[in-house]
Design a protein around this nucleic acid. Structure first.
Lengths: 95, 95
DNA sequence: CCATGGCATCGACATCTGTCAATATAGACG
DNA sequence: CGTCTATATTGACAGATGTCGATGCCATGG
């Protein structure tokens, strides 16, 4: 793997490398339509609302979730393609 | 994904979430027999020998590489199965 | 127009992380 | 034994990270 590739992939892995963010992404992806409202996500954790907001921002900035505001609510949607690309890259290292 | 699963996978992802360690693992895995001597790895980076040793330790403690000493040299071998399991888990989230 | 509720941002704090120079350890070979 | 040579450990330091309370922003409803 080139240094450039590694430098590009590492931030995405870093965004995933947290138990809270892993569960957040999993929760979002397992929702119907692959998107979830922040209000639902807040209730799933014993963490403050700003902390969840922070983790969602990290996932978003890594390109792992899309963000869309509809009325008062904000929905985050999982980027399955990004996850699949990452998976393919790891698979190529394993093989 | 359960909190326990997330808590178990996150440390492995954290070990992977560094450009140097990604390239290290990739280098090790791409070697014949899937293992590489530390002396080869040191030369591939513009980093001090202790720093490389530190990163290898992180990879080893995460279970991503095996360590075997043969004479004066130490060889690290990629755990392809662990990488494959991780890949499968990410794939299940994406799907 | 003001109050409320959902979400983001800020500031602060303790902890963790990546890096290096210095030093230790441990085989191999005179 | 003494001295290389290869690798690991230690100590130190700057910068990043996860968390919270307080606060700000923005739609919606009275």
């Amino acid at each position: 793997m080139s240094a450039e590739t590694a430098g590009g992939v590492a931030p995405v892995l870093k965004a995933l490398a947290d138990p809270v963010r892993l569960r957040l992404l999993s929760l979002i992806a397992s929702h119907a339509d692959g998107e979830a409202c922040v209000c639902d996500l807040n209730d799933a954790f014993d963490l403050s609302q700003p902390t969840i907001s922070h983790h969602l921002k990290v996932l978003h900035e890594a390109g792992l979730v899309d963000r869309s505001k509809r009325g008062v609510w904000v929905y985050y949607a999982a980027r399955r393609d990004v996850l699949a690309d990452l998976c393919a890259l790891l698979g190529s290292v394993a093989r």
